[in-house]
């Protein structure tokens, strides 16, 4: 699968489109590893999240995984359509399956597509 080159990635398998308001999702690799996503617990709009810390949960038929904040900041929007119909996370993880939008106040090291591809190929 191809990784969008304009996104940044974390070793926790999230992607982030950094901008004034940044969009966050999980990678296709993560969605495929989870299996069919059946429930999303996303951080509340207005809440402050801390990079590297759990900020929600992604539940598939077989497992529950923490959603790890990719950066410090404030959550400004969540993808209500994905909450209502989580299968979009499997169908279009880099597009309509985005999870939330945040205003970043601090960010650690993020990976570019090449580095993330190396990470998942080495796994």
């Amino acid at each position: 699968m191809s990784l969008p080159a304009d996104l940044r990635y974390t070793s926790d398998h999230e992607w982030i489109a950094t901008d004034e308001v940044s969009t966050v999702g999980i990678t296709a690799h993560a969605a495929d590893a989870l299996g069919d996503v059946v429930f999303l617990s996303l951080p509340a709009v207005g809440s402050t999240i801390v990079g590297g810390r759990p900020c929600g949960e992604i539940e598939s038929t077989k497992s529950v995984s923490d959603l790890i904040a990719p950066a410090d900041g404030e959550v400004v929007e969540i993808n209500e359509a994905a909450v209502a119909a989580p299968e979009v996370v499997n169908r279009d993880p880099f597009g309509q399956g985005w999870l939330f939008r945040m205003r970043i106040t601090g960010v650690g090291d993020l990976l570019d597509a090449t580095a993330y591809a190396a990470l998942i190929e080495g796994a």
């Binding site: 299996g35 069919d36 059946v38 299968e87």
Partner: peptide, 8 residues
């Protein structure tokens, strides 16, 4: 095999 496409 865990699944082929979608377990659902």
């Amino acid at each position: 095999p865990l699944r082929y496409t979608s377990e659902l």
